[in-house]
Design a protein around this nucleic acid. Structure first.
Length: 298
DNA sequence: CACCATGTTCCTTG
DNA sequence: CCAAGGAACATGGT
């Protein structure tokens, strides 16, 4: 469940529930997700400590704990990878098959589960230093975006996945933002004109804000994926709710009609990952070329 | 068996 | 140093 909006909604949900809970014990069932922290290190850092805060940075979860008889905070960094989940369960509830870390809080347990084990729960905070600004913060300005893009010859879609440019955009919202900005995902980053940069800047913020609002206003199950999946990326609309059905306009919609112009949505591969776009609403270098060729030969 | 999947990091090649 | 591309990580769904 991993892009910025999903993590943000999770943090808002979990933060008050976790506050002041004390860690009684830790069951690490897949030590890999702690790396480079060891089981021993984690236990000595958090057992007996009390959760005092939870925040998000990019796609990362930042847990803050207070250790009794020790001044200062202990921080735990979480990342959900592609399939990670963090949720509270009751003590004694059956554990999911891929529970990686189970934190005993007394009556409740905090479960970090991750089917593919790409996620992390660690004391190593160094990944945060590499992140660019928060897209919804004042540090992320059109001028900043323009300056960064000017120095890149990567396709704009690929560049948006670069967490050092701006933190939190993933494969879904990169496609969505470009669609809303009317920019071809193949356009070379430095080739965006100033008004395109500004439209992209606005589209990024709009798409992320809307997704957070969607996740905040709809009841969600943060734990087990049912038919409905835990947090709110649904490859397809999970029910007939227009809310979900309309939320993603291009992602996962190859072959469907564009909601703006009716042209069929296409899928392309960029940097080994799928990009979804409307070839008409998002004309770029490729389609211009194709038209030119067609014009010459026919 | 084939292909696909919300992410990051590391390695090779140019 | 940079950029691009691919593989790796690991499991599951269709």
């Amino acid at each position: 469940m991993p892009e910025l909006p999903e993590v943000e909604v999770l943090v808002r949900h979990l933060s008050p529930l976790l506050k002041n809970k004390t860690v009684r014990g830790l069951d690490v069932r897949r030590a890999k997700v702690l790396a480079p922290t060891t089981v021993t290190q984690l236990k000595s850092a958090v057992i007996g400590a009390r959760f005092s805060g939870l925040a998000r940075r990019g796609k990362y979860l930042v847990f803050e704990l207070q250790q009794r008889s020790r001044r200062g905070s202990v921080f735990l960094l979480g990342h959900l990878g592609m399939t990670g989940r963090v949720y509270l369960a009751r003590r004694g509830d059956p554990l999911p098959k891929h529970a990686a870390v189970v934190i005993d809080l007394g009556r409740q347990t905090l479960i970090f589960e991750d089917t593919r084990y790409f996620g992390r729960l660690t004391l190593d905070m160094t990944p945060l230093a590499k992140l660019g600004p928060e897209p919804l913060s004042p540090k992320f300005t059109p001028a900043y975006l323009a300056a960064k893009l000017k120095r890149s010859s990567q396709a704009i879609k690929v560049k948006l996945l670069d967490q050092s440019l701006v933190a939190g955009i993933g494969n879904i919202y990169a496609s969505e933002a470009l669609f809303r900005a009317g920019i071809s995902p193949r356009l070379v980053a430095r080739g965006l004109r100033p008004e395109q940069v500004r439209r992209l800047w606005r589209a990024i913020r709009q798409v992320l804000r809307e997704a957070i609002r969607c996740g905040s206003t709809v009841p969600l199950s943060f734990s087990r994926r049912g038919k409905r999946d835990g947090l709110f990326y649904f490859g397809r609309a999970p029910n007939t709710s227009d809310y979900y059905a309309e939320r993603l306009q291009v992602y996962g919609r190859e072959g469907e009609a564009c909601q703006v112009c009716g042209t069929r949505i296409r899928r392309a591969i960029q940097a080994s990952r799928s990009t979804f776009y409307c070839p008409r609403c998002q004309r770029g270098p490729a389609s211009r070329m194709r038209r030119k060729c067609r014009g010459k030969t026919s």
